[in-house]
Simulated assay, not measured.
Amino acid sequence: MHPGTLPRTRGRKALLGVAAATALALAAPSAAAAPETGPGPVNRAFSQAAEEFGVPRDLLVAVAFGETRLDGHDGEPSHAGGYGVMHLVSSPRRHTLEEAAELTGASERELRHDNTANIRGGAAVLESYADRTGVSERDRDRPAAWYPAVARYGSPDDLRMGRFYADTVYTILEGGVRARTSQGERVTTPGRKVRPERGRYTDVPPPAPGPTEKPDPRGADYPPARWVPAHPGNYRAGRSAAIDTVIVHVAQGTYTGTVNWFRNPASRVSTHYVVRSSDGEVTQMVRDADTAWHARDANPRSLGIEHEGYVADATWFTDALYRASAALTAHLCDTHGIPRDREHIVGHTEVPGNSHTDPGPHWDWDRYMELVNGG
């Protein structure tokens, strides 16, 4: 399909001129929220993109919320090379940004920086995935039927991570979304009970706590964690130094996106643990005894913890995230004999030879250390 050519849809309208929306800020989901469709530009963008491409509006919002919490981050990329509210990715293995450009005729720059174009591009990609995964035309009005397309949107070549991603989106859909833009516009969806139709993903086991991931039957070193191993080309087996440091990172991306990125052989990076913002869920990706690639020269002697979120947005640093991360850090300190102090529990930005700024000015070190030490 050539740029500028409108793809096939049911009842599709022509291109809709909508003013670019400003970046969005996170607000808590609410099952009681009533849908709001205007008159703001972001609501119009979701509604018009949903109608044009035949994607249920609430599902489109849930995908965006799960990807970015509806924050376009002024066109800056995530760690995985994703842009805008819909997290359109341009990376060696994923090309949803380029796909959206071809499907909608918008330039890649527009898709990166214009929220309206980005939302429209995400809807176009989802519709094309619905075509590829066999979602029938008569089922397009039912969010439950879109599960395979959503899973492909999250992870096109890893069925297990695709299910992980889609399950998260459908949890958001069930709970509902309430968000507010930086200009005060509210974007909401009601909570709804949906039984997703998983299709080919039905028998794919999602990541789960404990020893479920083969070929390593030991499971996670930290018992509450999921065990989802990073790609073996993204870390080194064994250690060349004793462990004496825990390094706190902020992922500049989402939980599922971060896990996916460390499973991608093109990333050449990894961490030991990833913590989710909404509920504090923990995934381990590299064993404590092995060397994750997260902090350059400090890698041989450190354990890395990535936290879902963005350095510039404090709303990602929830009570659940702080408490879960602190419990993990306390466990790691006790297990490996690391003192529970700020000389041995540090931010990425404090590690010599690193140019990163995480966890950034919004990270509450006093609170975190109080929790680590049993406060």
Rank of each mutant, 00 (worst) to 15 (best):
V259D: 04
A25V: 15
S155D: 04
L303S: 01
G199S: 08
G360M: 08
R342D: 10
V89P: 03
P3Y: 12
P77H: 06
I305H: 02
R367E: 00
V61S: 01
A145R: 15
G309P: 00
S128D: 14
R239L: 03
G309W: 09
D114I: 12
Y222V: 06
L126C: 01
A117V: 13
A225E: 02
L328Q: 03
W227V: 01
S355V: 15
D167F: 02
G122K: 04
R200C: 03
P232Y: 08
A230D: 03
N234K: 12
N115L: 11
D114V: 13
G72K: 00
P207V: 05
T37V: 10
R180K: 14
C333G: 07
N260F: 00
T22A: 13
Q48W: 01
S240P: 05
S91W: 11
M369F: 05
S136G: 00
A25E: 14
D158K: 13
N354L: 14
Y368V: 13
H331Y: 15
S47E: 15
T96L: 09
S107A: 08
F262T: 01
P215H: 03
F262L: 08
G374C: 13
H331L: 03
A62T: 00
D341S: 03
M161L: 15
L70G: 03
L371P: 04
P209I: 07
W261N: 04
A324V: 11
G162R: 04
A80K: 06
R10F: 12
T189E: 06
T245Q: 15
A298K: 11
A124K: 01
W365G: 10
